[in-house]
Nucleic acid binder design. Structure first.
Lengths: 364, 364
DNA sequence: TACATTAATTGAAACGTTTGAACCCGATTT
DNA sequence: AAATCGGGTTCAAACGTTTCAATTAATGTA
């Protein structure tokens, strides 16, 4: 057939087959404004031949000539983290009608890949870049090359607005407060807290929200019931931490009636630990998570949690970079989204007789 | 600066800035074989200038000229399904050292998007395409255009080898058998089964495996304990189905000591239903899933399940298409991977006194 | 001094598109 | 009959690379 060396059908092939010039064919197939001047018979003729040959315009040649790729890079730090997906979905949803096309990259939490992919996006002339980062990548020199090629960039999950990068993230402080207040209002007074790992920027504000509400309610947090997750080693590492701390708490014997975990996976680890000891959730002890990811929803008991408006964050991000591309928005901005309390089955009022694992209320 | 209209630094910019020709600059920066003939001083000079200006070669121009994109398209039917991710990871892992680059697309279970994305991949001149499909998309005319442009294609999760497309999928029959045998060996004799939806091609063979083992063990499956999920409406729709069927079973009152669910999410729905009725898993009733996705692992009790070697399937797929690209493999092949039993906490021997919800052994 | 040899660099064509300007030609206007 | 018009089509240049062939400069040989 008309297969050229590359194995792909080109405009030239169609030109030859139809007897018209490459220009005419191009005009017709790309539906350029000029195509109105092309005779109707010619148009259909060319179109049918293209169809027949299975022609697809070469995106590379086209973008090169048009000097536009209609492409937006999305760099997700870890696609296996259920946290990422709704954000990506949000971005996609907003991009769909805009004729922009997402280029999705999964960093797999590997520092080196992050740089590689960022370069790749630059090479692919992405019109803008959205980074989903939550943790990892302390000193990223995004600033460097991306900025140098004046590609709009936006980051979700970290506040880098101070360093000149627009950011979107949940109001962690309010989230922490929301969680704490919920437990307080249920009647809990002895609440264990598992803080996030130090290198994770969500940790501190979330913890501040918790403390503030505690103080405000005249509740004092027992230091022996406060823990901090060690460094993050993967999306499921929170689970291990939650499990381990719970075991420790139970053997230590400080009484508590609720656990406020840093995120959903950690909370699920806590539930596992409590159940190991024969304790029921929420009858004997309440547990709260943070994020509202799928596993939290389908676990039994369903997890009470603080929902991050992930999808909305994605949409907001897409909207922002589109604005930036169109040159309407230049200044860096910080956008904090409002978290939302989702009450499910893992929280309830504390048992009337205070749980204290030392007194052997385990079952087996 | 040297910014041209496009806003991106080009070879010409560097040529101007360095005083050398575009050719020389290209030769140096792309590390072409000829670059050995270029004076060392020139080389370093050019390189530093490129660095300084933040040059990144234009992938479009480059691919156009080189007539090769080093790109492999991955079309995932639904990234929010935890099933997809490990496969994608496997592909990535295999691709990493090969200098090929994955182009990841999330179809979001929308038929129309599937076609769009496939076209897009053709336009982007992907060297090969891997489709992760499990369900959806009955009559896909992949065959048409993709074939016409002779791009190697491979599908994971469906058997399309009969229609001339290489396929990789788990041996569902063996999986079903494995699950059933496990429950039988624990001593279960009255086992409820929730079959997969009709339009999903995994359903039938899995069910066959179950029946065969039942027959082989001289166990008869009570029709009143066999259900079939309705059409799939999303990754979490299995959960709703499992929950609903369990409620129905419990009110119907047929005794059973174990539930074999079509997949993990369905199994989690079953657990929820049992718990609602105050029944314990696995003490009062065992539950099994299929797939081994994250939520199954972090739920309590942790779900006993049949693991699909998802990662390995991804790696195998990548390997295959790489072979095909290099022209070594031409014929279509079907590869069935072996499932694996993962015993966790949700299965145990049946209670000595047979559970029968009619006799009011609920708790509250 | 002229000539061949090597080393370093460059010219120019090509990849597949798009697009403003030019072209051709039959029909209308003056 | 010449000039104008405009519908239908094509020329040719450009996008940023790569790469073969050609050019120049410098060195060694006759």
């Amino acid at each position: 057939m008309g297969q050229r060396k590359s194995g792909h059908v080109t405009l030239l092939d169609i030109a030859r087959a139809s007897g018209f010039s490459v220009s005419t064919v191009s005009i017709v197939l790309s539906e350029a404004p000029l195509s109105q001047n092309v005779a109707a018979t010619t148009r259909t003729h060319i179109r049918t031949i293209a169809q027949q040959l299975g022609y697809h315009p070469d995106a590379y040649a086209r973008s090169l000539r048009r000097r536009s790729t209609q492409t937006i890079g999305i760099v997700a730090f870890d696609l296996s983290d259920p946290f990422c997906i709704p954000i990506v979905r949000g971005i996609q949803a907003k991009l769909q009608p805009s004729a922009y096309f997402p280029l999705l990259m999964d960093v797999q939490t590997q520092r080196a890949l992050f740089d590689d992919y960022l370069h790749m996006l630059l090479e692919r002339r992405a019109d803008a870049v959205i980074v989903i980062a939550s943790w990892v990548f302390e000193e990223m020199n995004l600033l460097g090359d991306v900025r140098k090629n004046n590609v709009p960039i936006l980051i979700i999950g970290r506040d880098l607005s101070a360093r000149g990068t627009s950011s979107i993230l949940v109001d962690n402080e309010e989230g922490g407060a929301l969680a704490m207040r919920h437990l307080y209002e249920l009647g809990h007074r002895r609440i264990a807290v598992i803080r996030g790992p130090q290198e994770l920027c969500d940790s501190e504000p979330r913890w501040k929200g918790v403390r503030d509400v505690a103080a405000q309610c005249g509740m004092k947090l027992d230091e022996r019931l406060v823990f901090q997750l060690p460094g993050v080693a993967g999306p499921a590492s929170g689970f291990a931490g939650g499990l381990q701390f719970t075991r420790a708490m139970l053997t230590a014997g400080q009484p508590f009636s609720a656990v406020l975990a840093f995120d959903d996976l950690t909370a699920l680890g806590v539930v596992r630990g409590l159940r190991e000891a024969g304790l029921r959730v929420p009858e004997d002890c309440s547990v709260m998570g943070f994020d509202d990811i799928l596993p939290a929803e389908v676990a039994t008991p369903a997890m009470t949690t603080i929902r991050q408006p992930l999808r909305e964050m994605g949409m907001e991000a897409a909207e922002r970079v589109l604005q930036a591309i169109r040159g309407k928005e230049k200044k860096v901005r910080l956008h904090r989204t409002r978290p939302e309390l989702v009450v499910r089955m893992s929280t309830a009022s504390p048992p009337t007789t205070f749980m204290n694992s030392r007194n052997g209320n385990r079952r087996s």
